Simulated scan of single mutants.
Amino acid sequence: MKGFHMQHCAFTTVRKANRVLFRRYQEALTPTGISIVQLSILRALERHGPLPLVRLADDLAMERTSLYRTITPLVEACMIDLSKAESGRTKIAELTSEGQKTIERVMPYWAKAQEQILSEVGDGDWQAVHKMLSAIANLKC
């Protein structure tokens, strides 16, 4: 057990960084009425096309109940269409034209936050951090 007190906890460090980044992006997006999590959902559907909700939750590393709660306002605002798969059990999420317009409207706010964060961190450092965080994100639970 000797020496453990000298190591920085990966969880605590990443959690603190996550909270700071979340606040920064959320604050930047406030004028748009879209949260950073909602934007992430819209952009995932833009990247992948229609997805079963289970796969969408996995792609975003979200709990399904959190995804359902967060996606509901997007469905109500006609940004995402939900339909049942042929089996009738699975729901499929699809980006609508309204959702695409929302992404286009919100991205300048996101880009401003992204640029500010990267200028503070430094592009070279960000590349290394991104590589490490991607490796962590790909660890098996």
Rank of each mutant, 00 (worst) to 15 (best):
Tyr109Ile: 00
Gln26Ile: 01
Leu39Ile: 09
Cys78Leu: 07
Pro50Met: 06
Thr70Gly: 02
Ile34Phe: 09
Asp59Gln: 14
Asp58Ile: 10
Gln127Gly: 02
Lys101Gln: 14
Leu21Glu: 01
Ala57Glu: 00
Gln100Arg: 15
Leu53Asn: 08
Ile36Leu: 00
Ile103Tyr: 13
Ser87Phe: 00
Gly33Ser: 13
Thr102Cys: 15
Ile117Lys: 06
Ala28Asn: 03
Leu56His: 03
Gly99Trp: 06
Arg64Met: 10
Gly124Val: 07
Leu53Ala: 00
Glu104Ser: 15
Leu45Val: 10
Arg89Val: 00
Thr102Trp: 07
Ala57Val: 03
Glu98Pro: 00
Arg47Cys: 13
Ala44Trp: 04
Leu60Val: 09
Glu94Thr: 08
Asp81Ile: 00
Leu42Pro: 02
Thr90Ser: 04
Glu63Tyr: 08
Ala111Leu: 08
Gly88Cys: 07
Tyr25Thr: 03
Leu45Gly: 02
Gly99Thr: 09
Tyr68Thr: 12
Leu45Phe: 10
Gly122Asp: 01
Leu45Pro: 02
Thr70Val: 09
Arg105Glu: 13
Gln127Phe: 10
Ala77Gly: 04
Leu21Met: 12
Ser87Pro: 00
Gln100Ser: 15
Thr30Phe: 07
Ser87Asp: 15
Phe22Asn: 10
Ile36Pro: 00
Glu76Pro: 00
Pro52Arg: 13
Leu82Tyr: 06
Leu29Arg: 02
Leu74Pro: 01
Ile92Leu: 09
Leu39Cys: 08
Glu63His: 12
Asn18Thr: 13
Leu67Ser: 02
Leu56Arg: 03
Asp59Asn: 15
Glu27His: 10
Leu67Phe: 04
Trp126Glu: 03
Val20Ala: 13
Arg43Cys: 11
Leu39Ala: 05
Leu60Ala: 07
Leu74Met: 14
Ala85Asn: 10
Asp125Pro: 01
Leu21Cys: 10
Arg69Lys: 15
Leu74Thr: 05
Met79Arg: 13
Ser66Tyr: 09
Lys84Asn: 07
Tyr25His: 09
Arg43Ser: 13
Ala111Trp: 05
Glu46Lys: 15
Asp58Val: 11
Ala93Met: 06
Ser40Phe: 09
Val54Thr: 09
Arg23Val: 05
Arg89His: 02
Pro52Val: 10
Cys78Tyr: 12
Met107Gln: 13
Arg43Thr: 15
Val75Thr: 12
Ser66Ile: 07
Glu76His: 12
Val14Ile: 15
Gly124Glu: 13
Pro50His: 08
